[in-house]
Design a binder for these strands. Sequence first.
DNA 1: TATAGTTTGCGTTAATTATACGCAAATGTA
DNA 2: TACATTTGCGTATAATTAACGCAAACTATA
Lengths: 230, 230
Amino acid sequence: MENLQNIRVAVDAIVFGYKNNNLYVLLIEQKFGSADKYWALPGGLVKNDESLSNAVIRELHEETNVQLTFMEQLYTFGDDIHRDSRNRVISVAYYALVEASNLEIKADTDAERVQWCKIDEIPSLAFDHNLIIKKAIARLKSKLTYEPIGFDLLPEEFLFSDLENLYCTILEKEIDRRNFRKKILSYGFLDQTEHFSPIKSGRPAKLFRFNQLKYNDLIEKGFHFEIKFA
Amino acid sequence: MENLQNIRVAVDAIVFGYKNNNLYVLLIEQKFGSADKYWALPGGLVKNDESLSNAVIRELHEETNVQLTFMEQLYTFGDDIHRDSRNRVISVAYYALVEASNLEIKADTDAERVQWCKIDEIPSLAFDHNLIIKKAIARLKSKLTYEPIGFDLLPEEFLFSDLENLYCTILEKEIDRRNFRKKILSYGFLDQTEHFSPIKSGRPAKLFRFNQLKYNDLIEKGFHFEIKFA
DNA sequence: TATAGTTTGCGTTAATTATACGCAAATGTA
DNA sequence: TACATTTGCGTATAATTAACGCAAACTATA
């Protein structure tokens, strides 16, 4: 008599990495049946006794060996009833960041392939995963401008020019190098280290660190991070 | 052998209304078993063949007679496995706005009670609904500052002082009336009507309208709405 | 009819912030 | 040594924000 609900709950992860002026997304090769192979976002069904965010962590751990520096819920995709042609599945998508130094992937025990894919070279993916990535990129861009998550994509000690290039690359905007530096430094949450970067040419550059404690202090005092671009 | 997924998918709606310098949320009285009654957010389980957003619309229509002017997905609550003590249920929460002129509720056919509740007088609700409302308020506050959704809470023709009070009330901030007016008018998406408001005292005030077309034009030209407060 | 009280609507000025550059310092390389 | 390159600091100007003054247009009251 009763019409039982028959909807599965999945999670998907959009993991962003940044290296050499390029933004990357983590993709895995999924097998459907015997021959069909598709690139897709890492993810899978949520277990009955695990939280949504733990499901993401677990799936990422099962499929890859990345170390996240940031993770946040993105959106729940469930308006397209047929986004998975086999069953009704809604997907709670999370986006996450990894440090540049962590961008190498060891071959996994599974036969499944895992790969970093440049953001502008993403192939046609399974399900609505292209749409999900599109939304994740939009969110990443927006979040970059009002929270200091760019540092989560860089190594602990980084060059100012790297930070600057990261912003320019991801936001696809030009910016005045000198004004950018001035503004970020004026916030006062960066520590200058004693170290210099091994450089190719030009004046040696100091390495900087993001100081989370100083940032938290500022936030408590009502500080509001913002990077605006023309 | 296979451990089948047994997770229900629900939607919940946080419907905001604004009247007389007060922000309201729509609550319904839910019955648990024979005697237990709890105030809760409108919502319920998603049907197998309906989209998430349609589920919200349906539930609101079943339980109330409100006309929404805005609706957006808020967040999916599923990290607390026991948020519903009976079953594992994840809830996709949507927040929505209604016009002030629409703030009256007709008694519904159901025996269930429906009521607008002042934001600072919300009782202890069922499940994690207090938490959900908290998140919705935070989102509403933030959204008010970078998108012109305040107009969706006001009648079509409104006074500048109403708009100003709406911002002050919801954001819990003071603002200079004259600078606020200047800034909003400078954007150029408001139309001045020929009408005046029936007033109690003081100089008669012109009524304004939000012009969606003008706003869309601005957006295309790269305009970026923003209301900042000290 | 005058006067006080209230709210609207338009203005001006000072302070702050953003933008657009200039240029020397410190390196590697030819 | 001269040159190319990148860093790091500075200054002038434009634009925006914040702070405030005040007359206009009404109501209520004496």
